[in-house]
Amino acid sequence: MIEMLSAKEIESYLIFLKEQEKSKETIEKYKRELYDLLKFLSQKDLTKEVLILWKTKLQNNYSASSVNGKLVAANGFFSFLGRHDLRMKLLKIQKEIFSKEEKELTRQEYIRLVETAQKKGNIRLSLVIQTICATGIRVSELQFITVEALRKGCAEVNCKGKRRIIFLPEKLQRILLRYAKNHSIEEGHVFITKSGRPLNRSNIWADMKKLCREAHVSPEKVFPHNLRHLFARTFYSLEKDIAKLADLLGHSSIETTRIYIMESGKEHRRRLNQMRLVW
C-alpha cells in the first residue's frame, strides 16, 4: 500500500499517458497539477483525509472549473496506482445559460487587436490572430498551418487522436503565402520563432496580452481560445447548424459546442425587447 506520494510514481503515470497517446498539452497539464499536489503533501501521508484538506484549499483559491480540472488529474493518477479509495468527488457546477459579457470578445475588439499588432510591426502576431479566428482552430493546431497546406487551400489537423480537414479562406491563403515568401519560408510551418521552432501557446498568449492597452481591450478577453469562440459565434449566426459547427471545431459532443455559442445576458435582453410582447 502506498503511503506517500513520490515523483517516481508521477513520472511513471506520465509515461503511461504518453503511451495512451494523450496530447502533449494534456500531459504537461497533468504533470503541473500532480507536482503541485506533491508539493502540498510534502512528507504527509497519502490519505483521503489529507486529500480532502487539499481539495478545500483549492476551493478557497480557484474557480470551481479549475478545481475540477485538478481533481480530474489527481483521480486519473490514483486510478493508475490502483488507489480508487483516494479518488475525490468533483464539485457540482451550476450550468450557466448566459456567457459572461466581461469575457466575450466582440468583432470590433478583435479588429482592434489585429490592427494594433500591425501598427506595432508584429505582422506575424496579426496573422496568427486572424488565422485562429478565421478558421476556428486551436492554438495548438497552428502547427498544421504549413506552406504545403496553404498551397492546397486546406490543412489536415490531427489532434487528440482525431483527424479533420480545415479549409482556409482564400484571402487568408493569399496573405499567408505572401508572408511565407517574404520571410523565405519555402516549406513546413508558417508560424515559427527566430530559431525555426513552431510558435507555442505561451509565445502567442504573452504577445497578445501586450496589445490590450493600446487596442483598448480588456486583458480578460485577450487569449487565443477566445478567438475560437468568436469564430463559433460568427459561424453559428450565419448557418444555425450546431452539428456542422461541432465538426468544424473538432468537438466530440455538441454540448461542448453549445458553450461556444452561448449568448450574453445583454443579447438576450435585446431579443426580449424585440419580441414586443408587453402591450
Rank of each mutant, 00 (worst) to 15 (best):
R197G: 03
K194R: 13
A149L: 03
A180Y: 03
L249W: 03
N226T: 09
A243N: 11
K171Q: 14
P169N: 05
E186G: 01
C154Y: 15
E220N: 15
A246D: 02
I145E: 02
K181N: 08
D207Y: 11
K194T: 13
A215V: 12
R174L: 13
A180P: 04
V139Y: 08
R178H: 10
K160C: 04
Q173N: 11
L150A: 06
H183G: 01
A243M: 10
K162Y: 06
R233H: 05
H229Q: 10
N203P: 01
R174E: 15
S218G: 03
N203K: 02
R197V: 05
N200F: 03
F235Q: 04
A206T: 13
L211Q: 13
L176A: 04
F231A: 01
S195I: 09
R163C: 05
L211Y: 14
R233P: 04
R233Y: 05
Y179H: 06
R233A: 09
R164V: 09
E239A: 15
T234A: 07
L150C: 05
S237L: 11
A246H: 04
E148W: 04
N158E: 11
E141S: 08
Y179A: 02
I166Y: 04
G196L: 07
Q143S: 13
E214T: 13
M208P: 08
A215T: 12
R201M: 05
H229D: 06
L168R: 02
P219S: 10
Q143M: 07
T234P: 01
E141D: 08
I204S: 11
I192A: 00
F235A: 01
K181F: 07
E170M: 08
S195N: 13
H216T: 15
A180S: 13
G196P: 08
L230A: 04
T234E: 15
A180R: 04
L168K: 03
R163G: 12
G196W: 06
I204H: 12
P198S: 05
Y179M: 03
I185P: 02
I185K: 02
K240Q: 14
T193H: 03
H229G: 08
L150D: 06
R213S: 14
E214R: 13
A149K: 02
P169D: 05
P224E: 10
Q173R: 15
L248N: 06
I145P: 02
P224D: 10
K221T: 08
R163V: 12
D247A: 14
G196N: 07
A232Q: 02
L248C: 07
M208T: 07
V217I: 10
E187R: 14
G153A: 07
L230H: 04
K194S: 14
T234G: 01
K221R: 07
P169A: 05
T146D: 01
Q143F: 00
R233E: 06
A215Y: 12
V147I: 09
A232P: 01
N158R: 14
I242D: 03
E141Q: 09
K171V: 13
S202T: 13
H216G: 13
N226G: 06
N182C: 00
A232R: 02
L230Q: 04
D247I: 14
E170A: 14
F191A: 09
K240M: 10
V147R: 13
Y236I: 05
K209W: 07
L199K: 09
C154G: 00
V190C: 03
L245T: 05
P224I: 09
A149D: 03
N203F: 14
G196Y: 07
H229A: 11
H183T: 10
T193R: 09
S184K: 14
